[in-house]
Structures are given as structure tokens and as C-alpha cells.
């Protein structure tokens, strides 16, 4: 069976050109991994390790300098954006920033439908209502503006926005960072339920090792743009190989035992 998403030697260099000479400021070393349908992969690492950059490369905000991304065995080119936008959707870290303050949720959710599907207005409206109920909101919320929603509701809207095009893969950049614990677990459960129902591949970036352990099947650990370690969640949590991962896990264990 071909994996849903295959990433081969994906690299990225950002060059800055000061007046004298060339300097490379940041690079993502070749990254390769595979993702199967219905599988969840977590990307871990400290700040500035290239996690968000990897997410941006996957969804197509940034153009990679080398390597390729295969979706169902077919190469995704940077020119065929439409296909990628429909198949891979992103949930942003700050849901508040990623929603346009001047538009109602209805028109926000309608935008991807107008641009990527040929549904007519009534069926678009139906689809919007359906997606809103899917993420546990009411159809009436389509008349709301960003500022009328709580943080958790905004996160749900961000999920709805990702889901509305029936994607195959969702990339989420720290979707739970700004949420308080109860809302966070609600959102986690919502995402896991949707994944079970729709068979989505899910790539998810987080600092929170508790959630990572809870929902992910496999883990990729990044440090300074290099892949330090990757493998099954259980294996990494119980037998971390590299020193960097060991430190991360130890810090997490220390936190749990202190809580107990």
C-alpha cells in the first residue's frame, strides 16, 4: 500500500545577502518520512528547531530548496497549488490571528469553497452548516465575527476551516498551545474523533509531550533543523536513543512525577 504522504530529503536554506558576501542563516537538513492514512505523526523539538518551517513547507507556504513531497505516490509540484491546497490543510498556532476580523465565520468558511470547488451558493451554505456542526458548533455561528468567540471556539473554527475541503492530511502547528487544559482536552478529543471518522492523516507539532504521547503514533524529533530521532511513540518514550531526546523525555517525566 502506498503511504498517504512521502517526504524525501526535503531541504530548505534561507540565504541572507548582506552587502558583503553570502551567508546562510537557517537550514533544514534533509528530512524524510512517511505517513499512512489514519496515522498521526508528531513533530517535537525546541524553539527554532525548524518545526514550523517543516509545516510551512508541507502546506506550501514556503518553497523547499530541494527534495520532494509525494501525495499518494504522486509528486506535488509547487506550481500545482490547487491540488495541494485541497489535499493538505493547515491549522494555525494562533487561531485568533488566522481568522479575518472583518468577516463573518460564514464568509470565511465560504472562501475555500468558492476557490476550490464548484458548489453553488445553497450547497455551500449547507456544507458550512454541516462542517460547523461537525466540530461541535451551531449553524448560527456562521453569522458571528471573530471577536464574539472564545478561544476554544476559535480553535474549532480553525479546525472547521481545515476540514471543509475534505482534505487527506491536516498539518497543525501547535494548535493547543494557547488553550486552557479543559478546552485543550476537548479539542484533542474532537480532533481524534474526526480522525477516526474521516481517516485523515494528521501531522502535528507540539511542545506538550503529554498530548504527543496521548495522540500520536509516531514521533519525529528535530533539533537545529536536523532530524535527531524518529520512530514509534512507545519506543521513543521508553527507549530514547539520542541524548537530546533523553533530556526532553526526562524533563517531561520530572514534571509528571512532581505533579503526582
Amino acid at each position: 500500500m502506498t503511504p498517504l504522504l512521502t517526504v524525501n530529503n526535503l531541504t530548505y536554506c534561507k540565504k541572507v545577502r548582506p552587502w558583503l558576501g553570502k551567508k546562510e542563516i537557517f537550514r533544514l537538513a534533509p528530512v524524510s518520512f512517511e505517513l499512512k492514512a489514519g496515522e498521526t505523526m508528531a513533530i517535537m523539538g525546541e524553539n527554532g528547531s525548524g518545526k514550523s518551517l517543516l509545516a510551512k513547507l508541507l502546506v506550501g507556504v514556503e518553497r523547499p530548496s530541494g527534495g520532494n513531497i509525494l501525495l499518494n505516490g504522486e509528486a506535488l509540484s509547487h506550481s500545482n497549488k490547487q491540488q495541494r491546497f485541497r489535499a493538505i490543510r493547515m491549522i494555525f498556532q494562533h487561531s485568533k490571528e488566522s481568522l479575518n476580523p472583518a468577516l463573518t465565520l460564514g464568509s470565511l468558511l465560504e472562501e475555500p469553497l468558492i476557490l476550490n470547488t464548484d458548489l453553488d451558493a445553497p450547497s455551500r451554505k449547507k456544507k458550512i452548516e454541516l462542517t460547523l456542526t461537525q466540530v461541535g458548533m451551531l449553524p448560527e455561528h456562521q453569522y458571528f465575527y471573530r471577536h464574539m468567540l472564545s478561544e476554544g471556539q476559535r480553535q474549532r473554527v480553525a479546525v472547521a476551516r481545515a476540514l471543509i475541503l475534505n482534505p487527506q492530511i491536516i498539518v497543525a502547528d501547535e494548535p493547543f498551545a494557547a488553550l486552557d487544559p479543559s478546552v485543550r482536552s476537548q479539542t484533542v478529543n474532537l480532533l481524534m474523533k474526526l480522525q477516526r471518522d474521516l481517516g485523515l492523516g494528521f501531522i502535528f507539532i507540539s511542545h506538550n509531550l503529554g498530548i504527543v504521547r496521548h495522540i500520536s503514533d509516531r514521533i519525529l524529533v528535530l533539533a537545529d533543523g536536523n532530524v535527531v530521532e524518529s520512530g514509534k511513540t512507545d519506543v521513543i518514550f521508553n527507549w530514547p536513543k539520542s541524548e537530546y531526546t533523553q533530556r526532553l523525555i526526562q524533563a517531561y517525566q520530572a514534571l509528571i512525577t512532581r505533579d503526582d
Binding site: G60, Q82, N100
Partner: peptide, 17 residues
């Protein structure tokens, strides 16, 4: 530079839109 523009771009919107 705001994130909602990036989000709109990922919806497939061009510069004029």
C-alpha cells in the same frame, strides 16, 4: 504580513482576491 492573509492564501486566494 498577518496570519489571516497566509490562511487565505492557503485557501487558494491570489493577491487581488
Amino acid at each position: 504580513h498577518k496570519e489571516y492573509v497566509t490562511a487565505a492564501r492557503l485557501d487558494g486566494a491570489g493577491n487581488n482576491r
